[in-house]
């Protein structure tokens, strides 16, 4: 950390093995990114994670826990729910942030475990393309679904 200024001059800023307390002691993992794309990726994961704490956990509690949970979810339920711009906006934000957060997480995991450059490239681009296609599919459905196009089913 930049606050560690008590080191003698000429010594590395990171504590060596066995010094200090907490997670910084004996650290062997990758260092926190200091700039460029990886820093923004790191920050994005935290900001979007905080948003998803409300969007995703709220979604899961509403759809799967309260009332009768997923038992009550059918076409008529979606018709009623997407009659409100509030839930459409909620679902679109959830779609967008969950896809970017998830695909970026997959990218970090692929960088850790897939060593061959070709396989890394193919896997990462498979996830980027899947995420992009699903983002457009979800966006089109969330914003173009017309609840009045079908007569009430219940």
């Amino acid at each position: 950390m930049a606050t560690r200024t008590d080191e003698p001059a000429g010594r590395p800023m990171e504590p060596g093995p066995g010094t200090g307390r907490g997670l910084g002691a004996n650290r062997t993992g990758r260092d926190r990114p200091v700039g460029g794309f990886e820093l923004w990726s790191w920050l994005f994961m935290r900001v979007s994670g905080l948003l998803l704490l409300f969007l995703a956990v709220g979604h899961v509690l509403i759809m799967h826990v309260i009332d009768e949970g997923v038992e009550r979810v059918d076409f008529a339920f979606v018709q009623l729910r997407w009659g409100s711009p509030f839930w459409r906006t909620w679902d679109w934000l959830l779609l967008t942030f969950a896809l970017i957060h998830g695909v970026n997480g997959l990218r970090v995991i692929v960088l850790d475990y897939v060593r061959r450059p070709g396989a890394r490239f193919v896997l990462n681009w498979f996830f980027y393309l899947t995420g992009t296609v699903l983002f457009f599919l979800g966006t089109v459905i969330v914003f173009t679904f017309d609840p009045s196009a079908w007569p009430a089913t219940s």
Partner: peptide
């Protein structure tokens, strides 16, 4: 996302 899109 795919199963929800079927609502369309």
């Amino acid at each position: 996302v795919v199963d929800t899109a079927v609502v369309g």
